[in-house]
Computed example of a mutant assay.
Amino acid sequence: MTSRVLLVSPAMSASLRQARFDDGGSIDESGAVRARSAAGALPSAARALTSPGVRCRETAAALGLDALPVAELAGLDVGRWRGRTLEEVGAAEPEAVGRWLTDPASAPHGGESVRDLCARVAGWLADAQKLEGRTVAVAEPEVVRAAVVDALGLPDAVFWRLDVPPLTVTALGGRAGRWNLRLGCPLAPSEAD
Rank of each mutant, 00 (worst) to 15 (best):
V169M: 10
E112R: 11
T102R: 15
T50V: 08
V149K: 08
L187D: 00
D127A: 09
W179N: 07
R115G: 05
V5K: 14
R20C: 02
P166K: 14
S51I: 07
V148D: 05
A147S: 13
A19V: 12
E93D: 06
L16H: 11
V78R: 05
S26D: 15
D66L: 12
E87N: 09
P52H: 05
V144L: 03
A32E: 05
E191Q: 14
A137I: 09
V5N: 10
A91Y: 03
L167M: 02
A46R: 14
G184F: 10
G111S: 09
R36V: 00
C118M: 13
F21A: 10
A126Q: 13
S9F: 01
D193P: 15
M12Y: 01
N180A: 14
F159C: 06
V148N: 08
N180L: 14
L73A: 09
D193Q: 13
W179E: 04
A171L: 06
L68G: 05
A105H: 14
Q129H: 14
E29F: 02
V114S: 12
P141M: 01
S9W: 02
A62D: 12
E112G: 02
D156P: 03
L101K: 11
W160P: 00
G25T: 06
S13R: 01
I27F: 00
G174K: 09
V158K: 08
G98W: 08
D23W: 01
W124V: 09
F159M: 09
V70G: 04
S113E: 06
V148Q: 11
L152P: 01
D127K: 14
S15R: 02
W179F: 13
E88A: 12
R115V: 05
P189T: 04
A146N: 07
W124S: 03
L86D: 00
A171W: 01
S51R: 12
A60F: 10
W100I: 01
W81N: 06
R47A: 15
L6K: 10
P52V: 08
D193K: 12
L76F: 06
L63E: 03
Q18V: 03
V148E: 12
Q18R: 15
E58S: 00
G173W: 10
L162M: 12
H109C: 10
P166E: 00
T50C: 15
G173K: 05
A147E: 11
T2H: 09
V89C: 06
D22T: 09
D66S: 14
A146R: 10
G25V: 08
F21K: 06
G25M: 05
R4E: 15
D77N: 12
G40C: 07
R175C: 09
F21G: 01
N180T: 14
D66M: 10
